[in-house]
Design a protein around this nucleic acid. Sequence first.
RNA 1: GGUCUCAUCGUCUAACGGUUAGGACACCAGGUUUUCAUCCUGGCAAUCGGAGUUCGAUUCUCCGUGAGAUCACCA
Length: 477
Amino acid sequence: MTSIRTRFAPSPTGYIHVGNVRAALFPWLLARQQKGTFVLRIEDTDQARLVEGAQDLILDTLEWLGIDWDEGPRRGGDFGPYIQTERREHYLTWAQKLIDKGLAYADPYTPEEVTVFRDQAKAEKRAFLYRDHRPENPPAWDGSQALRFKVPNVKRYTWNDPVMGELSAGPEALDDFILVKSDGLPTYNFAHVVDDYEMGITHVIRGLEYISSIPKYLSLYDALEIEWPVLACLPHIMAPDGNKKLGKRDGAKSVQEYKDQGILPEAMLNFLASMGWNDGTEQEIFTRNELIEKFSLERVQRSGARFDEQRLLWLNGQHIRLLSLDDLYARITDFWPASASGASEEKKKQILALVQDRLKTLLDLPLLTEYFFAEPTPDWTMADDNKQLKKFARQDLIELLETTKQALSTSDFDANSIQETLNTLLETTGQKPGILFSLIRLAVSWAPFSPALNDTLATLGRETVLSRLDAAINAGK
RNA sequence: GGUCUCAUCGUCUAACGGUUAGGACACCAGGUUUUCAUCCUGGCAAUCGGAGUUCGAUUCUCCGUGAGAUCACCA
């Protein structure tokens, strides 16, 4: 058995958004799992919709996600070129075969005339089929008109989709569609069939929006005497509200946006995969390798899945916790607060270790660590609003801080010693931890939350802790 | 309108035709010697409707209903 070849074939008309990146992920997973080949092809035959820079954006996005391709732009390969506008002669060769067989003809109508046909059909409440208007004596095709496929077998087609199961569609789904546009470039319908064949693609995996066109492709495969590849359709990702397919208009964010928001690529992959796929167990967290190992098209859900950002955030936190400290450190370089710029790597790693379990996204880093690097401004209203501390008079709180300062000034400043000192302090002051520890925490950080108190103090260091206690006391008077 | 597809907690989903219909997110309530966004425990919550097949249907069949996709010289 020869190894499989799958592909992703984006159109460079903009960024990749989260709604369509699965069309890259699933074929990639399959190729990696079967030790096959993953091909990337750029479908740029629509010159009007081309967006400058979009191709690089797409490639960069895939690279960030870790969806690497074996053949395609930036890589090369034996079946290139991998950009459709560089393959014109391939399409013309195949078009000529169809012409020779009498299965393609020049379209004599203007777009306006076709529109009239279409409106007519609509008015009569029936489907518009171009083949009802097939000209008797079409002019010879000279390349300036559109070239149409003359569909030879108007019949019901049945095929097996690994995701959707056995599918079929009647003759209404077949028509004389355009193979080559009057600008000389092929349509998607024609080009992708030619390319998938020439590039040896064994599994064509794409979004559900193509499902109703598949009979057309089937009739073309037959006319070209090409064996059908495996044809699989992936259900849509739906907008968070409503039942519409998630698209840019519904606020689908680009993958890059999630990167900027501190989402890890492996969390994104896990999230995208688990929307519509699971391995049948209760496992929720999958590493990249586990996805590769366990993925199967047969277990892909048939119905669409709503995009739930909460779940993505949760998964991201889980994946952050899975990272080694060094790995996390390497990935989080761009997210440190500005005040951290002068801090040593050792210091930053120490702090990072403290907050790793609390990060949901990399973007949370400044909020969680700012006070380690910059002097916080005392804000006693935070104590007034605290549900434990509000019961106390300001003067009592200040006295508690004075006592704390005394105790800490003679304590060793490692986490264990600090904990002992704090425990002793609970006894001597007769306060509950909920009161005393909240107060100290606030006085040294003035932040809404922080890691365990002893760790926080140890990391700040004696000098800083004492001076901040002073500052807090002075500000409170 | 034609063609095609789909349908389990609010959301993502599990369940050889036999389960008290399971898990996760979110939410709510407790707990972990501070806070908390980590962690632990508990709670809330679902098979679209109707027939049929069957001893037995979330599961198979049919009919409804609802939702989606598509009907381009776009992909």
